[in-house]
Amino acid sequence: MSDRTLNGRERLTPSQRARRRFMSHRVAMASGAFMVALILLVLAWPIFSQPTFAPHLPQALTWAPDKLNDAQFHPPSAAHWFGTDALGRDQLARVAVGARVSLLVGAVGAGVSLIIGVLWGAISGYVGGRTDSMMMRFVDILYSLPSIIFVIVLITTLEVLVKQWMTKIFVGGAPEAVRLLFLFFGIGAVSWLTMARIVRGEVLSLRTRQFVDASRALGAGHAQLLFRHILPNISGVIIVYLALTVPSVILFESFLSYLGLGIQPPMASWGSLIADGAQQINPIRIYWWLLVFPAGVLTSTLLALSFLGDGLRDALDPRANR
């Protein structure tokens, strides 16, 4: 390489260095590969589940519903890798369909919390003064509330109301979409607090820096200063924290679905599948595959996401240089 500094090391831009550090983090790379594979599986599932590929559709019942027996429960086999559930549906298909909801809620919920948190924190830190202390006091108050309890009360009470509005506005509108919307925005709306605090702290320290003064002297407006000059400088911190928000949002959704307040049948998410599996616990026959597979996929996803977050932090945190 011709491009070398005095001490013989390659000259790299910060983003190249970050990419290199991330690539050398083997566990994080493996976790990234796992997540990519999972997302590809979810995206490709509509094709895989066509009858030509798989004769065992998730909806297809493999038993006679009029007979009272437990023949519909197939343990894992070559035909049904994850076994079949209480209605004789292929559990692998259910887990794949559940992954769609869980990952979607994770992504959208984290996105909502990202938008609210970054805007709130950036404005609070940038404007400063009395506005700042008011906005942060509000965050403090929300912090001290039991958010899970509030989300539960919110979902159980307001959902019917919103459903009524929706059916009035869109005639014959999709009521099951309401629950999904509630999950997206409800979970996002309670998980933005830490993001706001982090962003505010960073903006507070950046806005007095000289390059900000310089661009202000050159005539940059507030929006340009904030979005062009300050926020790109803290994107690393934001990305790292976003990566940590995704698993907690997924966990929150599966928790609500476990309680029966999340996704409703026939849709599925990992939480509702675990709840279904827990429902089938009985002293006569143990259908372990109903519990172990959704739980295993949920846990591996959470593990992979936190390894990914660790890797990103090591790569993007400038103090991790040593």
Binding site: P247, L251, S254, F255, Y258, G271, I274, A275, G277, A278, I281, N282, P283, I286, W288, L291, V292, A295, L298, T299, L302, L303, S306
Partner: peptide, 23 residues
Amino acid sequence: ALLAVCVPGFVVGPLLIMWLAVK
């Protein structure tokens, strides 16, 4: 330790019931 952080209570509970209590 990381695994413990990634296994929520509503997963541990039913698993414990299934194996240690029922089986």
